[in-house]
Design a protein around this nucleic acid. Structure first.
Lengths: 212, 212
DNA sequence: ATCAAGTCTGAAACTTGTTCTAGATTAACG
DNA sequence: CGTTAATCTAGAACAAGTTTCAGACTTGAT
């Protein structure tokens, strides 16, 4: 049972200051290769040996940076989400109500994913297949998603009821995405589902306190 | 690309009449072994070689009945869902409103899953990891779930708005289950999420027709 | 009972994720 | 420079899902 005396480049995220420039470059090459391979072929097309080869890194090194294929793809998703959030910030949604703005934002994100359905497939499958060992990373993705939704709402101080609604919207978003990716729901169906869930934002009567 | 001139026992579902008694028995042994192995250890513990051994069937035969591990586990879920539905029918929920009855039913189902968290893990992971080749089976599970929810509502002729709400509830149910299974949400959180989604049933003002 | 077609078995082979090892390279420090 | 620890590389090895194959067994029809 090795005690891992080595520094883990994946763990040293605080300010990327712990990573050499060449290490940063390696990390970026890996994520790029991952996204590129995922773009054509989805989850199955991201083969660790090929990612290693494409990013000019040894297989062992790839595994030092990302301890599993799921870790790698979830990190890829973090990357893409950051881009998305930045893009969305630049052109905020223009709906009248909070729920309309959230629905518009999610549909915009959805259209972005539509442009690269294979990449979306790889990332979402990894996300839902992730076991406990990836929880921190998956949680980070979840927080990022929440942030995007809250941004779209534009509500500076959301009520507990609204936060509960946001959780349900997130659930709906993920699950609807999966059904679309596996061909069991149309795009129109996804829109309807999202809009239905978003309606919860306005009907925010009681807080969720009933559970305590 | 072999043309598969052989009859597929998995496809011959119409009335189980196409299957010999011994074939039915094999099928049941396989599903039992699958559920047992999943019960201790979850998704990873269901190893095809071991399932074959436990059910006294050759590996090739196992693959003839269930063309992949995911197919096997989704079939296991179909099986369990039928049990659940039968059990729930015997003692229908007693809430005053439709949304209360649905929430109660789902929480009851949830408690059943809690008793076998590893089994739940295996089934749900398989369900969300399934690709297009498993769509028919996954869809069947989805229809079964919808039937359970509609049963709980007790509404003989649900409106389009209510059907839309049911879809969101299903999304929430699956996704919340996943977050609980991977340790990212507490049971209380799951209940809150389900109750929040169920609120949509009562607030069923406009139909979903707005999309057209 | 016999034949043909389909099915089952046991075992090996193949694929891809993951781990391990030995040696080369790099980085930090004196 | 030279040393030392960490990192990287190439490649073998291992694990589990999946495929393949030759031969034995069942089944159904005659």
């Amino acid at each position: 049972m090795p005690v891992d005396t080595t520094a883990d480049p994946g763990a040293a995220r605080p300010a990327s200051s712990a990573l050499t420039e060449r290490q940063e470059a390696r990390r970026r090459r890996i994520l790029q290769a991952s996204a590129r391979l995922a773009g054509r072929g989805g989850f199955d097309a991201v083969q660790m040996r090929e990612v290693a080869e494409c990013s000019q890194v040894a297989l062992g090194t790839l595994y030092r940076y990302f301890p599993s294929k799921v870790h790698l793809l979830v990190a890829t998703m973090q990357d893409q989400l950051e881009h998305l959030h930045a893009t969305l910030r630049r052109r905020p949604p223009a709906g009248d109500t909070a729920s309309a703005r959230v629905a518009e934002t999610l549909m915009r994100a959805f259209r972005a994913l539509q442009r690269e359905p294979h990449l979306a497939d790889a990332m979402v499958r990894a996300l839902t297949f992730a076991d406990r060992s990836v929880s921190p990373e998956v949680d980070q993705v979840s927080r990022q998603t929440t942030a995007i939704i809250l941004d779209a709402m534009g509500t500076p101080d959301p009520t507990p009821g609204q936060l509960a609604a946001v959780r349900v919207i997130e659930h709906t978003w993920h699950s609807a995405l999966i059904t679309w990716l596996s061909g069991r729901a149309s795009i129109a169906q996804v829109r309807t589902d999202i809009e239905t869930a978003c309606r919860l934002i306005d009907h925010t009567d009681p807080g969720p306190g009933g559970a305590s």
